[in-house]
């Protein structure tokens, strides 16, 4: 799945495709090594580098907003969920209903990601950039991350 995203990002672009591919392959290799060695700490690094490959493709592509971004996001989050499940699988035989439930949850996450991606694209098309807006964006990004971590600790 992740390999598909890496390959598509490399092949879809017209400029410096080898740079995009190299970045993507590095990310894919790190995720593969994390799965093989069951190292959960480097999965995020590998996924971030695959995301960076897509960002590199977008930067080199230029032009309008890429309408296929929600699909890339869906692939990334699905790969992330499956990777963490593979690294730390539950101990013991899993009941069939629980497996089915996990599958449904994964489908819901993917569909939700597609929806969020589409909403972001719609919002991106209707907003012009400005310095103030960028500052607000930075603060929002930092606040979102901090809130996430604080919620995790408090729970």
């Amino acid at each position: 799945m992740l390999g598909g995203l890496v390959g598509w990002s490399a092949l879809a672009g017209h400029r410096l495709a080898w740079v995009v591919a190299a970045v993507g392959c590095a990310g894919w290799a790190i995720v593969a090594a994390a799965l093989a060695g069951r190292w959960s700490s480097i999965v995020a690094i590998g996924l971030a580098i695959v995301g960076a490959e897509y960002a590199t493709y977008l930067s080199l592509r230029g032009g309008s907003v890429d309408s296929r971004a929600p699909f890339a996001a869906a692939v990334l989050i699905a790969a992330s969920e499956l990777a963490f499940l593979a690294i730390a699988p539950p101990a013991g035989r899993i009941e069939r209903t629980l497996l089915l439930r996990f599958g449904l949850v994964l489908v819901a996450i993917v569909l939700g990601t597609l929806l969020v991606g589409e909403l972001v694209l719609v919002a991106a098309g209707s907003v012009r950039s400005s310095l103030a807006l960028e500052a607000v964006g930075v603060l929002a990004a930092v606040a979102a991350t901090a809130l996430l971590l604080r919620t995790a600790v408090s729970r």
């Binding site: 996924l47 971030a48 960002a55 977008l58 972001v120 694209l121 991106a124 964006g137 929002a140 996430l148």
Partner: peptide, 21 residues
């Protein structure tokens, strides 16, 4: 980490698609 990196990259590179990621 992925959230923070994605949002900051989106701001730095001015790519709204990364927000969606």
């Amino acid at each position: 980490g992925l959230t923070g990196a994605g949002l900051l990259a989106a701001l730095a590179l001015r790519l709204p698609e990364l927000v969606g990621l």
